[in-house]
Nucleic acid binder design. Structure first.
Lengths: 109, 109
DNA sequence: ACATTTAGTAAGTAGTAACTTACTGTAAGT
DNA sequence: ACTTACAGTAAGTTACTACTTACTAAATGT
């Protein structure tokens, strides 16, 4: 049930930028915010959403708060997508066969 | 560049339901709408978004319009996620090694 | 020809969400 | 003790988006 919130969290462009910044490793909020075109509180709010979605984790380090990518929700999202992919391909194959049965030789009737 | 719009399209719950209904095979708009708690025009609007995102395709069949899943955007989304996954895991490993260097024996100093 | 079915479009509304500034809190430095 | 640095929270605003009903268009059936 976690892939839904993960999808919603990653849908926003600037929140996705926040998330992608953590690919290079754990970072404090201020560093993440610098370089982004939004204010630091906005980044804090985005990080809160990402954390609730299970996409990031955080640890305190003095007055700083270090955020890092949490693979948990990312794995759930991948699992959902892979399953979807497989089922969709099955539907394609079934549909192709059905059409073949309906019109075996559609070029020269 | 297509995974962004795909993400945004799949973020909405009812739009995701519309999309998931097509897993069982191509369907006309009316059939998709029946069983969903929203009006048929709403489903049409969702299908428009899904189509612009490259997630579905459609063909005319008399007065009906048949929609089906288009694997194009789905593949792009999977590729992005997989790449992200790999890079994130690399970051985890690098971080784990860094911490090991900083504090080799943190239990018994 | 006309009615019916099917579906996209238009217009308007309500709820949400992303952002801002102002503030509060807490740990570290002097 | 006091200031400074860092970050989360509160409150308010704006913009967007998902939805509705009403209309339009086109293909099929009688």
């Amino acid at each position: 049930m976690t892939y839904e919130t993960a999808l919603a969290a990653l849908a926003d462009p600037t929140r996705r930028k926040v998330f992608e910044r953590l690919k290079s490793g754990p970072q404090p909020v201020g560093v993440i915010a610098s370089g982004l075109p939004v204010s630091r509180p906005a980044v804090s709010q985005h990080l809160k959403v990402l954390k609730e979605a299970g996409l990031v984790g955080d640890r305190e380090e003095g007055t700083r708060r270090i955020y890092y990518i949490d693979p948990h929700a990312l794995a759930a999202l991948r699992a959902w997508l892979d399953q979807f992919w497989d089922e969709a391909l099955d539907a394609f194959r079934a549909e192709a066969e059905r059409k073949e049965e309906d019109q075996p030789n559609r070029e020269k009737p």
